[in-house]
Design a protein around this nucleic acid. Structure first.
Lengths: 192, 192
DNA sequence: CGGTCTCTTGACGGAGTTCAAAGCTAGTGG
DNA sequence: CCACTAGCTTTGAACTCCGTCAAGAGACCG
């Protein structure tokens, strides 16, 4: 797992080899089974998480039992509940593995140390946050005004590989539409 | 306008008086009429914006002519299109005054200078970004899974003062529901 | 005082949801 | 390695709620 992460950092950050080695030295490794939880609402998100392989979903549980999905996080990306992590307060969201997954974890205090040590890491982290914001905006816009067809089309364009890896009901939960509607759309698209 | 902003900074940041003075010295003042645009989609967002008085809306224009609203920004808060500002690339969104408004502007290069000069300002800016992320998440969740009634209720709780200052059609555009539905909800609530 | 913008209300149509049942797939355990 | 089962997907029918269209009343601004 670690070598894959090292490789990722070499290509996606400006960090030096010693810096990368130091970052890896503080990482904890963990494997998640399908559907295994990494964070449950009410718990405090104590770790920064990098996904080496697999897919995680960040979701909420509504009063009626539905599970709207805020985000999918796949290999070579990060996943945390920022609010719970930053302020070390109980999380409102859940994070769980959709597939069997391998993740690297850093204790918040360790990661904070690394951020203070390496300006390059800090800069990299800020870029991640920014990109997250841009994507969230687009997603919010789609949720507000796009038709189900458009939402599905956007999703298929942005995450073509996830289409085949996720249960449809999760895609529906991510798009904010019913499973029934999603099925209809996919069938309609086939007709073209 | 400047004194009001100075006061705001004193209460909401850890900045020192000289720092505040320096920040203000680089600010540009501008007044916006009702419905006047501050940023039009396609333009580059060249300024950081602080709202001294009034309300701005950040919105998109859909193919069908509707104007979904991503965010309202009221007095004592900031408003920019982060993506366009950070990367100095054409904006996808519009920003316009809902009421006559007074704003302070900083050229990006000036503000970047200030951020580099004052760690306290940087820290303050990061807090703003974080809060923005938390709020966006909540909003996305509501857009995905809440009923129109719940969305309106949340809005009324979170922004009680805006309720009376905004045209209802804008609240509808913000909640992602039709004006008709919004009217229906408000009437229903009255009955209780 | 006129005009524009805003809000309300009605009727209608349709898209999406819910409920339920059945077939299929894939993962699990023996 | 196979059989079984649980979960996933599809489909149908009925319904509900939201959106569109249109008209009219009211409020506010210039």
């Amino acid at each position: 797992m670690i070598p894959a992460f090292e490789n990722y950092l070499r290509h996606h950050s400006q960090l030096t080899e010693p810096e990368i080695a130091r970052i890896c030295s503080l990482a904890l490794q963990r494997k998640l089974k399908r559907n295994e939880s990494l964070l449950i609402a009410g718990e405090i998100c104590r770790h920064k998480v990098f996904i080496v392989s697999g897919v995680l979903r960040t979701y909420s549980v509504s009063g009626d039992g539905s599970e709207p999905i805020l985000q999918f996080s796949q290999e070579n990306s990060w996943a945390i509940d920022a609010e719970s992590y930053d302020q070390q307060q109980p999380s409102r969201y859940n994070i769980a593995a959709v597939e069997p997954s391998e993740v690297l974890l850093w204790h918040k205090r360790d990661f904070d140390t690394l951020l203070a040590e390496f300006p390059g890491l800090k800069k990299y982290a800020e870029q991640l946050i920014s990109r997250n914001i841009y994507i969230s905006r687009q997603r919010l816009l789609a949720a507000l005004s796009a038709t189900p067809e458009e939402k599905y089309g956007d999703f298929a364009n942005n995450y073509p590989d996830l289409l085949s890896r996720l249960p449809l009901r999760m895609i529906a939960a991510y798009l904010g539409i019913s499973l029934k509607t999603l099925t209809r759309i996919r069938h309609a698209q086939w007709a073209r």
